[in-house]
């Protein structure tokens, strides 16, 4: 065996039908099937989930923290992008 360490996987759990999968952590596994089983054993022991996604960590591409200013600050002063300039009719309850 040349590769001693199993690859790392990111685990996403949906806690209830209708909700989104949320990132809950990571684990090691030899392949996707084992990753799902391991996720079941590590992250759903206390009824946390109804569905599991796993993605090998190397496939996740993240933004660079050094880019934070360039990426996010420009949105700061653009209040007109928020849909807050409308009167919501009284009949509409859930918004």
């Amino acid at each position: 065996m040349t590769q001693k360490e199993w690859p790392l996987w990111e685990v996403f759990i949906r806690s209830k039908q209708g909700l989104d999968h949320k990132h809950v952590g990571s684990l090691h596994a030899a392949d996707a099937e084992m990753a799902i089983q391991n996720a079941r054993d590590v992250y759903t022991r206390r009824m946390e989930g109804v569905s599991i996604w796993v993605v090998e960590s190397k496939h996740v591409h993240a933004s660079n923290p050094d880019d934070a200013e360039a990426f996010y600050d420009p949105a700061n002063d653009k209040v007109y992008r928020h849909p807050t300039f409308y009167e919501v009719p009284a009949e509409i309850k859930n918004m």
Binding site: W6, L27, H28, Q37, D41, V42, R45
Partner: peptide, 11 residues
């Protein structure tokens, strides 16, 4: 042998 299987067996 690894944390994940330690937990699997405990489960």
């Amino acid at each position: 042998p690894i944390l994940e299987q330690d937990l699997a067996m405990a489960n």
